[in-house]
Design a protein around this nucleic acid. Structure first.
Lengths: 133, 133
DNA sequence: CGGGATCCCGGACGATACTG
DNA sequence: CAGTATCGTCCGGGATCCCG
């Protein structure tokens, strides 16, 4: 690579990758598939409130990125299984730490929100004007 | 907590936290602030293509979540500095591993995309019908 | 069952102008 | 400098129908 990746440059490929990770549905799908291979409607049932359109669309782009594998079995009716590729597995484990963070710190976040909504006092100092710069 | 967090439940708070992380701008801001304290327009310049509206909006919700701290200095014109809170720092380091993943695997992702766009051969097996289930 | 195609709405987002 | 306010647009994504 001729120039180092810069996610803050709008054109940089790593920025696009970051944006994809930023997809809320993609994150949930990766976390689920890290645990087990699932079929389309199984994913649909597990991820509450996702529409079939978004599921199908998100699965397709994850497949395009080489993160998940799509296997079609010629049964009637047809069966389609989704699983992580090796590449996808490396990402999924990273993404799962985000889930762990969320579960561990959800309390602190909610408390911060309540304080902020009350009028953001407490914890945040009001700076003296002596601190001019 | 009475019931365990379930990010797949649309109402679960951890799901909302995950969605916030899913915010593309939030991720970039956290990564930048992990490195150093920055002022509003400094952030604006560094994050290419962000509008002042989105920056202001994202900063506000990050502050509300207790992830960043906003400090106003009574200079003329006024100076505002943004920095991570302790809570924000724990998240930022996790998020930064995503950036590292993106930089490390961007090549593999782009190659997968090219293959997919060519007609998704190579690597993906066409299953024999004998594998009926 | 696992989607694709179409229609359509609301909210996200950008551009611009104004202010303390 | 660091925002807020207003407006207008665009498109993400839900709903629905259909098909192999």
């Amino acid at each position: 690579m001729l120039h180092r990746p810069d996610p803050f440059n709008a054109q940089c490929p790593t920025r696009r990758v970051l944006d994809r990770i930023g997809d809320k549905w993609a994150v949930l799908i990766l976390i689920l598939l890290e645990r087990e291979t699932l079929r389309f409607n199984e994913l649909r049932r597990r991820i509450e409130a996702i529409s079939q359109k978004m599921l199908s669309q998100t699965l397709k782009s994850l497949e395009r990125d080489g993160l998940i594998r799509r296997e079609v079995f010629a049964t009637v009716p047809v069966t389609v299984e989704y699983s992580l590729t090796d590449l996808g597995r490396t990402l999924a484990s990273t993404v799962d730490t985000l889930r762990l963070w969320a579960e561990a710190h959800i309390g602190a976040v909610e408390e911060a929100q309540r304080r902020y909504d009350r009028g953001l006092p407490a914890g945040e100092a009001i700076l003296p004007e002596t601190a001019l710069r």
